[in-house]
Amino acid sequence: MPTDSDAKTTEQAARILELLWRHALPAKVGGRGPKPGLSVDAVVAAGIALADRDGIGKLTIRAVAAELGLRAMSLYTYVPSKEALLVLMVDAVAAGDPPIPVGLPVRERLIAIATRIRDELLAHPWLLEVSPWRQVLGPARMRRYERQLTAIDGIGLSDLAMDRAIAVLTDFATGNARLAIAARGAAAQLSDADWWQVHGPLLTRVMPAEEFPLAGRVGTAVGEHYQAPADPDGAFAYGVAVLVDGLLADPGA
């Protein structure tokens, strides 16, 4: 039999879905609700601005309320919890992803799927700290998925393979974005060139060359070329091209 806990979970899930799909659902007549003068959209926008500026660690209902010049308790009229706010923020960010032009060659459409995911994460690094597992689907994320599927529909992939292709491109873009953001944060403290000038010679001095002949040769070449431990932008361009070429070479996989 359903328990009180099950009923509460269902109620919370229903509330979040109602908020996510609020613009698609009929407006409620009468009853209690948010006061005029502020909207859920405004609360979500304030949450995104705060997370972009200060990181997700600083995101609290109290902090968002302060951004809007309100008391924390009044914000619960619009969103029931920080967790619900995060769900709304993730979907709102996805709404900024425009359609992929159908006139592009299919290879460029596939690359665009990964590029746009990466660009979104670079613009909003806090998204990397939101678990992608069991994310509640809102209209913007569903619309993006529909557009991604439309971009690769008809190229010979089965339905499962289309979903898998999008997942692989998304995972690659996410991993590369994580590295790029880490590089950006490190560079804010010490430039890669300065870091390499210190660590490169020290590593050469302590690492036995005869034990790591290939790693030493290739690592030195990479460090001298990039003047950094790695090249996230170049790695993304290379990697996404290889992934896409592999998908197109065997669309029936």
Rank of each mutant, 00 (worst) to 15 (best):
P213K: 11
S81A: 09
I155D: 02
Q189K: 15
A65E: 12
D6T: 08
P213E: 12
M207F: 06
L157V: 10
S39W: 01
G138C: 10
E129G: 08
H124G: 00
A51L: 09
R143P: 02
K35A: 15
E120G: 12
L68M: 12
V240M: 07
L19E: 01
A186Q: 10
A215M: 09
A249L: 11
L247S: 00
P125S: 02
H225F: 14
R184T: 05
L149G: 05
R184M: 14
G30D: 03
K28L: 14
E120S: 11
L169P: 04
A161I: 00
A51W: 07
V244I: 02
V44S: 02
G234R: 06
D245F: 06
G175Y: 03
R144F: 12
R164Q: 11
L20V: 06
L68W: 09
V130L: 10
P201K: 09
I166N: 08
A45V: 10
L110Y: 05
A123M: 05
A186E: 10
R217H: 14
A228S: 08
V87C: 04
L160R: 00
M142Q: 15
D153Y: 04
G185K: 10
V29E: 08
G185N: 15
D233K: 08
D97N: 10
V198I: 15
L243G: 06
L137Y: 01
L20T: 07
G30E: 05
G246M: 04
A151F: 12
V206K: 09
M142T: 14
P36L: 02
L137I: 06
R143M: 07
L17G: 10
A165P: 00
E120A: 14
A180N: 03
L169K: 00
Y145H: 13
I100L: 09
G252A: 13
I117S: 05
R116Y: 10
L38R: 15
G30N: 04
A49V: 02
D97G: 07
T204N: 09
V242R: 11
R184Q: 13
G223A: 13
W195D: 07
P208Q: 07
T170D: 13
V168M: 11
T10P: 01
A46E: 09
S39D: 05
D119I: 00
G175N: 05
A84F: 01
F172D: 09
G138W: 13
Q189T: 12
R15L: 15
A84T: 07
R118M: 12
Q197I: 03
Y145P: 00
L190M: 10
R217M: 13
T174Y: 07
G219H: 03
R71Q: 14
K28S: 14
G200S: 07
E108I: 04
A13R: 06
G47K: 01
P229R: 11
L17H: 15
L149Q: 14
G31A: 11
F172R: 02
I152G: 13
